[in-house]
Structures are given as C-alpha cells and as structure tokens.
Computed example of a mutant assay.
Amino acid sequence: MKKLFIILSATLVIACNSSKEKSKVDKNTSKEMISENNKEKVNDTVPYEDSVMLLGKANRNGFQMDAFKDWFNTGYANYEVDSETVEKLKPLLKDITITVFMGTWCEDSQRETPHFYKIIDETGFDESKLTLVTVSEEKTTPQGFEEGKNITNVPTIIFYKNDKELGRIVEYPIESLEKDMFAILSGKEYKHAYAE
C-alpha cells in the first residue's frame, strides 16, 4: 500500500509540473473559442482523458460543471480561512488585480483554487479584477494567454498593482495562501516555491 501511495504521489507531481506531458487538446479549438462578434468565450471545455478540461478564459461558474463541481465545492466548503490574516489583506487588495493560471486536470490546482476563491470572498475582493485562465498540461491556451508570463507550474497566482507584477504564488503556498498573499501585498520579502 505504501508503494502504491508513493507511485501515485510521484505521478501527480509529474502531472502538474511536467511540460512534456501531452494533453488531448484539439489544436483547432482556438477557432471555436472566439464568437462571431470576436468576444472571448469563457468556460469552454475540450476532451480530456475520460472527461473534459476547461481551456482558456474561465470564471467560477465553470467550476459548477459536473466534471469539476465535486472537488471545487468540497474544497471551498472545507477550507477554514485564517480570519486574522484576511482582515489584514482587505485594505491591501484595494488597487490590486489578480491573474490565476490553473489546470482543472491538476490536483494542486484542484486543491488551491477553491481555497483561493474562499479567501477572496472573505476579503470582499471585486471579482471583476480577477482573470482566471485555465491551461492544458503543457501550460498553454489556444489564445496564448500564458505567453510572456513564465507559467511553469500550476496553479500560478499573480498579483499586480498598476499593471506591475508584485509577486506570485506558484503551485503551493510557502506558509498559507493568506499569509503568502499578505507577504506579497505588504511588500515583505517573498519567494515562491520555484524562485531561484
């Protein structure tokens, strides 16, 4: 049983980190992603293994699809927010925009994304200032939303002020999502898990 757990753990780490893994994304989906009036669609899915994955721009409504709602709703409901740190975050989020890159296929994303949404709900963050991008196993989208963003692992949560990146949380927090967000937004020294 211990061997099986180690093998499964190693497989999950490789799945969320490896850019060599090939997903079953139809390269022609980019044509379907843009509507006739050139507005971006959100929450589009493509086939993935025995189910689907979200690919491209998305929002929390996408997580209520049958393929995702169990892990999202359970993760959201069961997460206990650090209320003390959330109170400190509230004023710091005022002029912030956030971009989240995640993969619905990735266990790290499935764990952290519902927690992140619960935290921003507790802070009263204006969700119109949040961009959610769902990526393939190669960390790509048909529209190239990831280009120039150095997305190597997911989830990657990037915090901006006046269009300047303040910092990012990559794959998992160092202390906790709330404390890592506070460190980034308060200007403290912070290095994400893959920083050199």
Rank of each mutant, 00 (worst) to 15 (best):
G144K: 11
G144D: 06
G144R: 09
F145S: 04
E146Y: 07
E146G: 08
E147C: 05
E147D: 14
G148L: 03
G148S: 10
G148D: 04
K149H: 09
K149M: 14
K149G: 01
K149A: 09
K149T: 05
K149L: 08
K149F: 06
N150D: 15
N150E: 14
N150R: 10
I151H: 07
I151S: 04
T152Q: 14
N153K: 14
N153E: 11
N153M: 09
N153R: 15
V154L: 06
V154E: 06
V154R: 11
V154N: 07
P155S: 12
P155T: 13
T156K: 11
T156W: 05
I157E: 09
I157F: 08
I158V: 15
I158M: 14
I158F: 03
I158R: 08
F159A: 06
F159M: 10
Y160R: 02
Y160N: 09
Y160H: 08
Y160T: 03
Y160I: 03
K161V: 09
K161H: 13
K161R: 15
N162D: 15
N162Y: 04
N162W: 04
N162S: 14
N162R: 06
D163L: 09
D163V: 07
D163G: 05
D163C: 06
K164N: 06
K164V: 09
K164R: 03
K164Q: 12
K164A: 07
K164M: 02
K164P: 00
K164Y: 01
E165K: 11
L166K: 08
L166G: 01
L166F: 03
L166P: 04
G167I: 08
G167K: 10
G167D: 07
G167R: 10
G167C: 09
R168N: 07
R168V: 06
R168W: 06
R168C: 05
I169A: 05
I169E: 04
V170L: 00
V170R: 02
V170N: 05
E171T: 13
E171C: 09
Y172W: 12
Y172Q: 11
Y172A: 14
Y172P: 00
Y172G: 07
P173T: 02
P173A: 03
P173R: 01
P173S: 01
I174T: 13
I174C: 02
I174A: 12
I174H: 05
E175I: 02
E175R: 02
E175V: 08
E175K: 12
S176T: 13
S176R: 01
S176Y: 02
S176W: 01
S176G: 04
S176M: 04
L177H: 11
L177Q: 12
L177M: 13
L177T: 12
